[in-house]
Amino acid sequence: MTTITRSLRMLIVMTIMTGVIYPLVITGIAMICFPVKSTGSLVYSQGRVIGSELIGQKFTFPGHFHGRPSFCDYSTLPSQGSNWGPGNSVYLSTLKQRAVNYREENNLSSVQVLPPDAITFSASGLDPHISLENALLQVSRVATARRIPENKVKQILFVEAARDKAIFQKPVVNVMKLNVALDSVGGIY
């Protein structure tokens, strides 16, 4: 019996320490030191939240760079990947379709080799990035849609890519921030 009471008292003390004080202290530190980062790195446009720079969102406009396909279609509650095995016939047939769509959208030849991230689902379904190769294949479409020179688009892409370059990370570009940068330059889409 003493074992149970001692266990219970210990559990209560530990719960208060690690389940209440600890997260609250961390939240306190977060509020003081990292008010933006700790609340979701939100991006505002005209005083309105348009997203988080960490969370991918769905882009379909031809004038926008498009993110990776998302199994949950960028829904967050909950987000998820496809969990298809490498030989899954559903996976392979949808993959084939996405390859066709991607080539069509970007006006690519049918033998164009595609970067792996262009047509595969990400793990989280919320991947905010695409690879540079993927982005470069989209440049011509974006430029045409916006009616601005490809070079201009490329230039913005490289600036953004350089900004997203980080240690221990693959060379990728944040699609949302890239599109925000594009939008700020203008062009019709």
Partner: peptide, 15 residues
């Protein structure tokens, strides 16, 4: 399907 070297990014984050 034209994926470079057959590298499988399915279920992998690009970063």
């Amino acid at each position: 399907y034209g994926i470079a070297h057959g590298v499988s990014m399915e279920g992998v984050e690009s970063r």
